[in-house]
Every structure is written in structure tokens, then in C-alpha cells.
């Protein structure tokens, strides 16, 4: 039971982090390497705000700061770096390469800034006016922050899936992902939709950053990097372009990791995500729910 609670919480965390990445990867062809940095820096902004003003902020305010900073950073990254790269690239392969390296360069900047600010020490929201407490629940323990993460996870997960499936803008966004040329022929404004998608992705990264900072107790400048690699695994597991696939991938990985920790000595946990990723790529390169990518060999 306790394992189940832990696995679901971890799955929600992975999901919140990976969904934004999946969204822009599947639609805009942007594999954003800076996603982890945005996640970390959004949480750090909340910490910095409290430290500088000397005020104690409630959880809701910290989450809001996370969302706003994340969305802002993400849009800036898109407009200033990623979009110019996409515009200049002459084919898909070179676009992928340049986006990758641009993201890597970008990712380094917030990490370096936070390392300087904190001397690489952990930062946390303990100065905030939010107390983490835990309760007995069906013979297991569950904390209030875990409940918040569950609620936010379910709400946002549903919202994003519905947005993509039901709304006009979601449909338009998906059509860019399928064929951007046809999409623009049909009069879809890719620029505005791209900014919207990046803002949603960054906002979710920021939100998960703030939530995790509370849930894990502390983050460091490098915290985003670990999640970034896991998110790759999750997205490919679920299939690039499929939101539902990403959600399934997140819970699958969280479950697998929790089981492995519970039943083995734990030193192989890191190999799980990458081993799974490798296997899925071999057996079903398009992922669990992904569409077959049309590509010339």
C-alpha cells in the first residue's frame, strides 16, 4: 500500500515534468534540453524571492511564481534561441542537432547562475508558510504535499489531454505536429501557437519545480538534469506526440523504479529507465501509443 502511494506520487511528478517536454517535442519538433533548467530555476525564483524580501510565502504563491517564471523562460528560450534555429535549419536532421546543442547551451546558463548564488548548496521552501504534515491512510502514510501533487497531477493531466483533443487550438497544434507545411497552408498561425505551447510547457515545468522543492525537501542547481534524462525515457516509452502515452510512461517508470527499490539492493535503479528505453526502442520504436513516424530511411 505504501509502495503504491509512493509510486503514484512519483508518477505524478514525472508526469508533470515530462508532459510539457512531450507537448513541444510532439508538436513543434523541439526537444528542449533546457526544460530541466527551467524547472529548477522556477523553483529557485520562489526561494530567491522569499530570501530577498524576507517574506514567508504560502504554497499557492510559490506555485504561481513557479508557473509564471517557467512560462516566461520557456517562451524566451523559444523566441530567442529555438525558433531562430528551426527557421535557419535546412533539413530535419540538422534542425534536431542544432536544437539539441542550443538547448544544452541554454540549460547551462540558469544552472551556472544558481550555482553561483547558492554555492551549489541545496535550496528549499522551508521559509514558506507551508508545513508538510503526514496522515495515516489505510495503514500507510500520506502527506499533504503528496495529496496536492495528486490533485494537481490529475487536473493538469486531464486538462492538457482535453485541450489537445477537444479544442480548436489543440487540434491546430496537433496538426502542426503531423505536418507543419500543410498546417500553415490551412491558415494556422504557427508562431502564436508555438508560443502558447512553449508557455504551457514551461509553466508545467515551473509548477513541478515548485511542487518538488516542497515534496523532496530541497533542490540543487543540478536537480533538473536527472529528471531530464528520465523524461526522455518516459516520452519515448509512451511515444513521441502522444500525451496519453507520456502519462502512461510516467507511471510505468515510477512503478518500475519503486518496485526495484523495494525488492533489490537499489544500485541498478538508474539502469531501469535506460534499459526500458532501449528495449522499447528496439521492439516498438514509436513507443506504446506513438504514431508511426514517416521518415525516409
Amino acid at each position: 500500500m505504501q509502495e503504491l502511494i509512493n509510486a503514484v506520487s512519483l508518477g505524478c511528478i514525472y508526469m508533470l515534468f515530462a508532459m510539457g517536454m512531450s507537448l513541444v517535442w510532439g508538436t513543434l519538433d523541439v526537444l528542449n534540453f533546457a526544460h530541466g533548467s527551467i524547472f529548477m530555476f522556477s523553483a529557485f525564483s520562489g526561494f530567491y524571492l522569499m530570501q530577498e524580501t524576507g517574506n514567508s510565502l504560502p504554497l499557492a504563491a510559490l506555485l504561481l511564481v513557479g508557473v509564471v517564471v517557467g512560462a516566461l523562460m520557456s517562451v524566451l528560450a523559444y523566441q530567442l534561441v529555438l525558433r531562430p534555429i528551426l527557421r535557419r535549419a535546412k533539413d530535419k536532421d540538422s534542425a534536431e542537432r542544432q536544437i539539441l546543442i542550443g538547448g544544452i547551451g541554454l540549460a547551462g546558463i540558469p544552472v551556472a547562475i544558481v550555482q553561483i548564488q547558492t554555492l551549489s548548496n541545496p535550496f528549499s521552501f522551508r521559509a514558506g508558510s507551508f508545513e508538510v504534515a503526514s496522515y495515516d491512510f489505510l495503514g500507510a502514510r500520506i502527506s499533504n504535499i503528496q495529496i496536492v501533487i495528486w490533485v494537481v497531477g490529475v487536473l493538469l493531466g486531464t486538462a492538457v489531454v482535453l485541450w489537445l483533443r477537444r479544442s480548436r487550438s489543440g487540434l491546430a497544434l496537433r496538426s502542426i505536429g503531423v505536418d507543419s507545411e500543410v498546417a500553415s497552408l490551412m491558415g494556422i498561425d504557427q508562431g502564436r501557437l508555438g508560443v502558447a505551447a512553449m508557455a504551457v510547457a514551461g509553466g508545467m515545468a515551473g509548477l513541478s519545480g515548485a511542487l518538488l522543492c516542497v515534496s523532496f525537501g530541497a533542490l540543487t542547481a543540478e536537480s533538473g538534469d536527472v529528471l531530464l534524462l528520465k523524461a526522455f525515457a518516459i516520452i519515448i516509452l509512451g511515444g513521441v506526440g502522444s500525451m496519453l502515452g507520456t502519462i502512461i510512461g510516467a507511471f510505468f517508470l515510477a512503478g518500475a523504479e519503486t518496485l526495484l527499490i523495494a525488492n533489490t539492493s537499489g544500485t541498478w535503479v538508474d539502469a531501469v529507465s535506460f534499459g526500458l528505453l532501449f528495449l522499447v526502442l528496439l521492439v516498438r520504436p514509436q513507443g506504446i501509443l506513438g504514431r508511426q513516424e514517416v521518415r525516409r530511411t
Binding site: E3, L10, F216, V226
Partner: peptide
């Protein structure tokens, strides 16, 4: 019980519970 984690481990709920 000695529960091994990595320096990449972030979620400690599982290891601590074990």
C-alpha cells in the same frame, strides 16, 4: 537492511520506507 541509492536519487520516500 542497507538500502542503496544513487547520487541521482531524488525521491526518498521509497528507500526510506524500505
Amino acid at each position: 537492511e542497507q538500502v542503496a541509492t544513487q547520487s541521482t536519487t531524488q525521491d526518498y520516500a521509497g528507500p526510506v520506507n524500505k
